[in-house]
Nucleic acid binder design. Structure first.
Length: 357
DNA sequence: TATCCACCGGAATTTATGGAAG
DNA sequence: CTTCCATAAATTCCGGTGGATA
């Protein structure tokens, strides 16, 4: 039923951004100096998950890059160190030879490379800015006048609170673009566009799209993934068009797909920890039991793996990441905390030895 | 209520990895 | 090839937290 799968991919960039005219204008005004060879202004894009923060930034920059000669780089901050973020940015910079940027290039060298890269305006998009580990990368970027930063984050107040006083001047409220959740009608229209481009004509009607838009409460990413899931479910069930039953079940399916992708993207230690939490069943597993069981199975599970088993502190860090990725829930804290798989349908990707009696 | 215990998570320290210089 | 040195990842250390126990 899905005629054009790319329409429903997370990274798909639509040709238009309906209902974001004023926000787009705000962003483009801040970037405008770059079209004249001047440094653009720093901008903070804030809003809840799934409201189109990343798409807005990419849309504006693509458009500007077409009209004028603007260079820009993009990096996600989640799970990366300050140094990794800087290196990715420098590799995107046209004035820097990407081959010169190595994993262990000193930060100081990176600073010099950036200085030597020229005075042409360069725009850096820091996505998931809430997860920027420290401000070192930001300090270095803002020290260079030609570089401007578009920071994307959920919590703008916390973003500003983390910055030094001398930097905070660049992040005033008037350079903040707030993206609220879409209204039901607005999101339904967006979904209608996607349906027209990616699905056969007439397999879903406006009322159904409004149902989806309403259920996901203005979260466009969830809405689009849910629409995709509904189409897939209709296929699997042999329906010629999307029925109410498909819509009913599409939300859980959509969330599952996101979680599965998250789990797949994680390294081996995380897979082992997830398997142990999953093993705890619907009731979850207490921290103590989790550690005991890890110790018991570590030898066998890590046998043949290039990695060695890790200590308790490392396990806590991996567990935190599983929680960040919405794969594991933690109930209570400190002594007596219980970890539980967020979705019983998401199976572990490593096998554990059977528990001893 | 007072004390204990196991875990939590920030920070300091150590180890692993890999490019560069000699 | 060996040594040096930078980063990232893992470990160690430790004060804090909040149930459990007497």
């Amino acid at each position: 039923m899905i005629t054009n799968p790319s329409i429903f991919e997370d990274g798909y960039l639509p040709g238009r951004l309906p209902h974001r005219d004023s926000e787009l204008g705000q962003l483009e005004r801040a970037l405008e100096p770059a079209t004249r060879g001047q440094p653009a202004e720093d901008v903070l894009i804030a809003g809840r998950s799934g409201v189109g923060k990343t798409v807005l930034a990419q849309f504006a920059l693509e458009r500007l890059a077409e009209a004028a000669d603007i260079e820009w780089g993009y990096v996600r901050c989640l799970g990366r160190t300050g140094g990794t973020i800087l290196r990715r940015i420098l590799r995107d910079h046209p004035g820097v030879d990407a081959g010169d940027v190595h994993q262990n290039t000193p930060i100081d060298d990176l600073r010099q490379m950036l200085q030597a890269a020229g005075d042409d305006p360069f725009v850096v998009v820091l996505d998931e800015g809430d997860d920027l580990p420290d401000t070192e990368a930001l300090d270095l970027l803002s020290a260079n006048a030609a570089v401007s930063v578009i920071a994307i984050c959920h919590n703008p107040d916390r973003w500003r609170a983390r910055l030094d006083a001398d930097q905070a001047g660049g992040w005033t409220a008037d350079r903040q673009v707030d993206l609220g959740p879409y209204g039901t009608d607005e999101l339904a229209t967006i979904l209608q566009h996607r349906a027209r481009s990616g699905l056969p004509l007439g397999v879903i009607d406006r009322g159904q799209l409004e149902d989806i838009a309403d259920t996901v409460a203005g979260n466009a990413r969830e809405g689009i993934q849910s629409l995709r899931a509904a189409a897939r479910l209709a296929d699997e069930r042999g329906h010629v068009r999307i029925l109410e039953a498909d819509i009913e079940d599409c939300y859980g399916r959509a969330r599952q797909r996101i979680r599965k992708q998250n789990l797949r993207s994680l390294p081996f230690h995380h897979q082992v920890l997830y398997a142990l939490v999953f093993e705890g069943g619907p009731g979850g597993v207490a921290a103590e039991a989790l550690h005991d069981r890890y110790d018991a199975v570590a030898d066998q599970v890590y046998h043949g793996s290039p990695k060695d088993w890790i200590e308790q502190r490392g396990r806590r860090q991996k567990l935190q990441k599983l929680i960040d990725y919405d794969l594991v829930e933690q109930e209570g804290s400190g002594y007596g905390a219980v970890y539980r798989a967020a979705d019983r349908e998401i199976e572990a990707r490593v096998d554990l030895p059977a528990p001893a009696e």
